Amino acid sequence: MATNTQEIHFQQQELKGKDFLTLADYTKDEIEYLIDLADYLKKQQKDRVIFEPLKGKTLGMIFEKSSTRTRVSFETGIYQLGGLGIFLSSKDIQIGRGESIADTAKVLSGYLDGIMIRTFAQEDVEELAKHASIPVINGLTDLYHPCQALADLQTIKEVKGKLQGEKLVYIGDGNNMTHSLMIGASLTGMHMVAVTPDGYTPNKEVLTKAKSIADQHGAIIEWTTDVETAVQGADVLYTDVWASMGQEEEQQQREKDFENYQVNERLLEKAKTDAIFMHCLPAHRGEEVTTGVIDGKQSVVFQQAENRLHAQKALMTALMTD
Rank of each mutant, 00 (worst) to 15 (best):
L319Y: 01
G77R: 00
E269M: 04
F87N: 04
V169P: 09
P202S: 04
E99G: 05
T290S: 07
A243D: 07
A121E: 07
D92R: 00
L163E: 08
N175H: 13
Q312R: 06
L128H: 02
D226F: 11
A24V: 12
K313Y: 02
E222I: 13
I101A: 02
S89P: 07
K57M: 07
E205G: 09
E288G: 01
Q251T: 15
L59Q: 05
M320W: 09
K167G: 04
L168Y: 15
T68G: 01
D124I: 06
K209I: 13
T141Y: 11
V195D: 02
Q312L: 09
E14L: 14
N203S: 14
T291N: 09
K160G: 01
L281K: 03
G218K: 06
V241E: 10
D36A: 06
R97H: 13
E228C: 10
M61N: 05
Q312E: 11
I137G: 02
I86H: 02
M320F: 11
N176T: 08
R48Q: 11
D322H: 15
S212A: 15
P146V: 07
Q247L: 14
D25P: 02
V241C: 08
E287I: 10
E123M: 06
I95G: 07
T224A: 10
L168N: 08
P197I: 09
I220A: 13
V49L: 14
A275M: 07
T119W: 03
D25L: 12
Q122W: 13
P135S: 02
V107W: 00
V169K: 04
A314E: 04
D226P: 09
Q12N: 06
Q12S: 09
I31E: 01
E30T: 03
K162M: 14
E265A: 10
T291G: 09
E248S: 05
L207V: 14
T317Q: 05
I93T: 11
T239F: 01
R118G: 03
E249K: 15
D25G: 05
D215G: 12
E166V: 15
R254V: 08
H191Q: 12
T225C: 09
S90Q: 12
D198R: 12
I8F: 14
D47F: 05
G174I: 11
S66P: 06
F258M: 09
D295V: 03
E14S: 12
D235P: 04
H179E: 07
D39G: 15
L23P: 02
Y33F: 13
K313N: 00
E228M: 13
R71L: 11
K211E: 15
I294V: 02
E75V: 07
F74Q: 00
L84I: 12
